[in-house]
């Protein structure tokens, strides 16, 4: 039974980040490959402040400030650069953050990670984590569904489909990008508040490149831009990822097999969605 609660907890912790990232990458078609970098900054900011001050309010506030600053930086970059250059740049930002965390031993303990992450008083068991994460996920589903149906959602979609036409209709690209990146950052923060507490351990290995591939696969498989589609793919792919543990393979084989499997799934879903992931712009 505990394993089912664990699956629910892990899935519901992934949902806010995946849905919020879907707004930028799926609906906005912005080649943002740095969501794990944002999550990394949020997690370390929250955990370091929570340990040093003992106050979750201060930790959440510092996490929020760091996420807002990084999201504003990414939004600014997205406005300045070509799409593909922005994609490479966001990977560079992610790897730079990772390099700083791995080398700033005095603050982050580097590759050793931070053990003994303090928990909210009401989060003591797997069940309580699962319920809390489910509530947060539900709030995010409702909020993102409202955003999707709002004029902002339509503006973001219009910019993704044809930027010049959208601009000529008076859509403010700067405002739309900033809001989209801030929402994506809030999703990362929600996950960052719960995930390290659940594991009681914060380690840079949990924020490496394969996790980006997992997120992209979720968005593409769930139909980019669709809230319910991405919700469903998050549930299915997270369950699949966790269920792989039951394969009778050693840990040395399991890691590579998981990489290969998710790589193949990603290729298959991109092939399946190749006409809708980045639709060709109509010229006439």
């Amino acid at each position: 039974m505990d394993f089912i609660w664990h699956i629910i907890a892990i899935t519901c912790m992934t949902i806010p980040h995946a849905l919020a990232y879907n707004l930028v990458f799926g609906k906005g078609k912005i080649l943002h490959f740095g969501p794990i970098g944002v999550s990394l900054v949020a997690s370390y900011a929250v955990v370091i402040i929570a340990i040093s001050t003992g106050s979750f309010i201060a930790a959440t506030l510092v996490g929020l400030i760091s996420v807002v600053l990084l999201s504003l930086f990414l939004a600014w970059l997205s406005l300045r650069l070509d799409q593909d250059a922005f994609g490479v740049m966001t990977i560079a930002v992610h790897l730079s953050i990772l390099a700083v965390i791995l080398n700033w031993n005095g603050l982050t303990r580097g590759a050793l990670g931070i053990p003994g992450v303090p928990r909210f008083s009401f989060l003591s068991s797997v069940q309580s984590f699962a319920i809390a994460a489910a509530v947060v996920s539900l709030l995010f589903v409702i909020a993102l569904r409202l955003i999707d149906r709002s004029s902002f959602g339509r503006q973001l979609q219009a910019l993704a489909e044809h930027e010049w036409h959208a601009k000529s209709l008076g859509i403010n690209r700067t405002k739309v990008h900033v809001i989209a990146f801030l929402v994506a950052g809030l999703g990362a923060l929600a996950t960052a508040l719960l995930f390290p507490q659940y594991l009681a351990f914060l380690h840079p290995n949990d924020y490496q490149y394969p996790f980006l591939v997992f997120f992209i696969t979720i968005i593409v498989a769930g139909n980019p831009g669709s809230v319910y589609g991405v919700l469903l793919s998050t549930i299915l792919l997270t369950v699949l990822k966790e269920a792989l543990r039951f394969l009778p393979l050693s840990s040395a084989v399991m890691g590579p097999v998981r990489l290969i499997l998710f790589g193949i799934i990603m290729l298959a879903v991109v092939y399946w969605r190749r006409d809708t992931l980045f639709p060709k712009q109509r010229s006439i």
Binding site: V213, I260, G263, M266, L267
Partner: peptide, 14 residues
């Protein structure tokens, strides 16, 4: 750009 990210994962695994 997206499919070669998948390729990188598969080659990493191999």
């Amino acid at each position: 750009l997206v499919t070669t990210i998948a390729l990188s994962m598969i080659l990493d695994g191999l």
